[in-house]
Design a protein around this nucleic acid. Structure first.
Length: 907
DNA sequence: CTGCATCACAACGCTTTGGACTCC
DNA sequence: CGGAGTCCTTTGCGTTGTGATGCA
């Protein structure tokens, strides 16, 4: 594949050097001509490059652009381009030395001939032409600017992901999910470590130990415990590259760890207290859509690793340096601090997880020097990150601070841990970032702008504790020990959204199992649905894990409550399902396009209809909102037939579509146009029916061994449902011959269509016969196949022998010719011949053997030893009564003692 | 500035039952 | 003469998803 960049180089090789070294005859004018051609090609490539954009003429294109665009231009029709390029090159190189006398005009005309074959647009660049005549011109580098009038709209070429890229992205997404599930299970099992649990219990104040005896645990009872934990365990900035159980032990020992470790410790503590507890994690997998991550990275500078996170952390800690201590247990401040530090650790964990994920090449490990650049990029690339009025200023200030801090990252890094530990900050001393964040967080939801543009501080890990005392039936309560939040499930979505974390999968882990509890934390499912993987796959992955999880949470001797443990799962499933079915109506129309619950009539596709048309659940911009369940897919009669359904009698089409013009195959379009208005005819419309208008297919059944066929004399086997009663589909090749031979009635089974050469062809697979003949035919088929296989094998062997014979005899013939005619030239002794003969003798024997061992014995030439097989006047003598004959096919193989054999057929 | 509605367009899915010619 | 085999040639429209743009 040649890129435009290569084109540039090519151009330079002719242009900068003036006369290419490999073509001394080329003069300046010829080079100019060539260059002209190259320019034209570039122009062509440029126009192809911006494929699809009608405003391509306005697209500025220069050599420099070519460099920038290197590697990005997959959509250029490179092959034809490369071909054209080589044509230019060839003509340039060959013309002077061939028929040309070097005359520039002739060369040019020849080139033009070449050019004429390609789809050039005639056009000239006056500047180029005028300067072309200048002798020194060719030494200049060329920049071509296509006329881009000042007012012209510059449109970014749209780069869309191909199906392949989408597939890759999905595979990466799935793989990443599996990795994250694996990680979750790992952490979950680490939380079950009895040593860890015992150690945590030993740290717990005596008054809290009583909690384990409490019946019907409540949120209120949990709160002091969570506060105690929060005040005793802190979030560390960097993670250790160690095995998780080890890291967890260290975290326990040092009372600080990554958010993941701290959350895991909290889970371990709750489990130690005999609470039914899950470790919950947001699986922030690589995007399901190609390039989404890259865009995010570019615009937000997130996920990229060290630089960004270091600097953001530093920013916080710097402000901490200036802070004084205050109430340690004030949750919002704690949250604030934790969020910031959590972000850093999340970064490292993301870095880790990303290793198994998508676009590794995009994850550039950056040193601290580049951090400033990152920050400035972040600033420039996310101009939207400003708030009501002065948010922009605040953010600018903040980012400036971050940038400055980043430069000092190395020296300050050592101090970070301590700084973060002293997390008690009075709100008056907070940096703008923190102040804003704090205010926002206290307001709880809807953090969307300035600070939110950074994907940091998102809650990623927490616990769910089953509280039997909550509600009448008990419930799973969200416990975020990292941020000291109890029962804050409604805050998670907003907090995650504020930090640009995709809350697509929230998975609860317990007992080596896992359960998707995203519904509990997600109010606007329609927003995440399209970012989630195919639910069939996801459900299949989780099914076994869900059972494990279910067994674990039901089986643990948890808090006693008034609900049987077996019912917990059921109740939770109901809760999640209820939540799924009671989403509020979106306020914008577009949300209804693919909404799983609601639909607007205007967003229905051609093949959809509302049936029944009601009830109206509400209104959006004046449009009635209907339940999605009312949306029915329509099909043609034939299409329903494929599904094994047929129309009920006297059903009128639910919808009638005008047939597209292409159906009018005849070359009289005008006549069709005339008929357009009254296209009530069957050819002019397509009748569509809904499923409610159909009933199970009722085909005529087979009678007297006769298969009912359609008007083409076949049976369309779209599925088993399409088989006439009393018939079976035998999808084996060549089976029709058996049925024919046995004189059993059959019909070819058409199983689909293959689209080839712009036309579709029916694809057949076996036959349809009456059920009573199934066994007879199959038995006969099996016998026939054995026979056929045997015959095939024989044929193959015979062919192999024949080919070996041809090969070897050609070698011998060659040797003989050498022997006879090259004697005078070469005095090579005849050893070679002898060798060859030996070789042949051996080989031919080996080859013949498998065919008929008895034959060889009968021939009586075993172990005769090497002897010259071919004498010049050797005449083949074939033995009679050679048993190597095939009685059935009357084929005989005649052999000579020299090894020669020939296949003859007796008539 | 933000969110929404609409436009534009690239990608993709669905379409759906040959015929002329040569060789044996 | 007829049957079997081979080769020809490589759609195009509608739908959908998504980026761009304009407006409130």
């Amino acid at each position: 594949m040649k890129t435009r960049n290569q084109a540039k180089r090519k151009n330079q090789s002719t242009g900068e050097e003036g006369v290419p070294a490999h073509d001394p005859k080329a003069n300046g004018t010829l080079a100019n001509t060539s260059q002209d051609g190259v320019n034209k090609f570039l122009k062509q490539a440029g126009s192809r490059r911006s494929r699809g954009s009608k405003k391509q003429d306005n697209h500025p294109l220069s050599w420099d652009d070519a460099d920038k665009l290197k590697g990005k231009e997959k959509q250029v029709n490179d092959d034809s381009y490369a071909q054209n390029m080589s044509e230019v090159k060839d003509s340039k190189n060959s013309s002077p030395s061939n028929k040309n006398d070097g005359s520039p005009q002739q060369a040019k005309s020849e080139l033009e001939d070449v050019m004429a074959d390609s789809d050039w647009e005639d056009g000239s660049n006056p500047n180029l032409n005028s300067e072309n005549n200048h002798p020194g011109y060719i030494n200049k580098d060329i920049t071509i600017e296509f006329d881009s009038s000042p007012g012209a709209v510059k449109r970014k070429p749209i780069r869309r992901a191909s199906a392949e890229e989408k597939e890759v992205a999905e595979l990466v997404h799935r793989t990443h999910l599996l990795c994250l599930i694996g990680r979750g299970r790992l952490i979950d099992s680490a939380c079950d470590d009895p040593l860890i649990q015992a150690s945590l219990l030993s740290l717990l104040p005596a008054n809290m130990l009583k909690l384990s005896e409490a019946t019907n645990l409540t949120v209120d009872a949990l709160t002091p415990l969570v506060n105690w934990f929060h005040s005793n365990f802190r979030v560390r900035i960097s993670s250790n590259e160690r095995s998780f159980p080890l890291a967890l032990a260290t975290a326990l020992e040092t009372h600080e760890g990554t958010p993941e470790e701290v959350a895991a410790l909290s889970v371990a503590l709750f489990r130690a207290l005999n609470f039914s507890t899950r470790f919950v994690s947001i699986l922030d997998a690589a995007s399901l859509k190609p390039d989404a991550d890259r865009c995010d990275d570019m615009s937000q500078g997130r996920k990229l690793g060290k630089g960004v996170f270091d600097s953001s952390t530093i920013m916080v800690t710097q402000s901490n340096e200036a802070s004084t201590s205050s109430d340690k247990h004030t949750a919002p401040v704690g949250v604030d601090q934790k969020i910031a530090s959590e972000a850093s650790t999340k970064a490292s964990s993301q870095r880790k997880s990303k290793k198994s994920g998508q676009s590794q090449s995009q994850i550039v490990s950056r040193d601290t020097d580049s951090t400033v650049v990152d920050q400035s990029n972040e600033k420039t690339m996310d101009p939207s990150s400003t708030g009501v009025k002065r948010k922009g200023d605040i953010e600018f200030e903040m980012q400036m601070e971050m940038a400055l801090a980043a430069t000092a990252a190395q020296t300050l890094e050592r101090n970070l841990d301590n700084d973060v530990k002293s997390s008690n900050i009075s709100s008056s001393s907070l940096s703008p970032f923190k102040r804003l964040k704090k205010i926002k967080f206290e307001e709880s939801q809807d953090i969307s702008t300035a600070v939110g543009s950074r994907k940091i501080g998102a809650p990623l890990y927490w616990a769910e504790v089953y509280c039997g005392g909550e509600n009448s039936t008990g419930k799973w309560v969200h416990v975020d020990a990292v941020n000291a939040i109890v029962d804050g499930e409604h805050k998670v979505e907003a907090a995650a959204a504020a930090c640009k974390t995709n809350l697509r999968y929230v998975v609860a882990f317990a007992g080596q199992g896992a359960k998707d509890v995203t519904r509990r934390y997600c109010a606007k499912w329609y927003k995440i649905a399209s970012h989630r993987v195919n639910s069939t796959w996801w459900d299949a992955v989780l099914r076994p894990l869900k059972e494990l999880e279910c067994r674990a949470t039901e089986g643990t001797s948890g808090t006693p409550n008034n609900v049987k443990r077996e019912e917990r799962t059921y109740l939770e499933d109901m809760e999640l399902e209820t939540k799924a079915l009671t989403e509020p109506l979106p306020t914008n129309q577009q949300a209804y396009k693919n909404h799983h619950l609601y639909a607007l009539e205007r967003w229905l596709t051609k093949y959809q209809i509302l049936h029944p048309k009601g009830p109206v659940l509400g209104f959006c911009s004046g449009h009635s909102v209907y339940p999605r369940a009312c949306v029915q897919t329509l099909h043609t009669k034939e299409r329903w037939m494929r599904e094994g359904l047929q129309l009920k009698v006297n059903e009128l089409p639910a919808k009638v579509l005008k047939r597209s013009t292409k159906v009018n195959k005849g070359k009289v379009p005008e006549a069709d146009e005339d008929d357009e208005n009254d296209c009530a005819g069957p050819g002019g419309t397509i009748d569509l029916y809904g499923k409610w208008q159909t009933e199970p297919l009722c085909l005529p059944s087979a009678e007297n061994g006769i298969v009912p066929k359609n008007d083409r004399g076949q049976v369309d086997v779209w599925s088993e449902k399409c088989l006439p009663p009393g018939t079976v589909h035998l999808g084996f090749p060549r089976i029709f011959a058996i049925a024919k031979k046995l004189e059993i009635d059959y019909a070819p089974a058409m199983v689909g269509f293959e689209f080839r050469n712009g036309r579709s062809f029916p694809v057949y697979n076996g036959i349809v016969v009456c059920s009573e003949f199934k066994n007879i035919i199959l038995e006969a088929y099996a016998e026939e196949e054995v026979r056929r296989g045997e015959e095939e094998r024989r044929k193959n062997e015979a062919q192999a022998i024949s080919r070996w014979y041809q090969l070897l005899s050609s070698i011998i013939t060659r040797q003989r010719l050498n022997n006879r005619y090259a004697e005078g030239v070469s005095s090579q002794p005849s050893n070679d011949i002898q060798k060859t003969n030996d070789a042949f003798h051996q080989t031919s024997e080996d080859v013949q053997k498998p065919m008929s061992d008895e034959a060889n014995e009968d021939v009586g030439q075993p172990d005769v030893g090497p002897q010259p097989l071919f004498e010049e006047d050797h005449e083949h003598v074939f033995l009679t009564n050679d048993p190597g004959s095939d009685v059935e096919s009357s084929v005989r193989i005649k052999r000579c003692q020299c090894g020669f054999s020939i296949e003859v057929e007796e008539l």
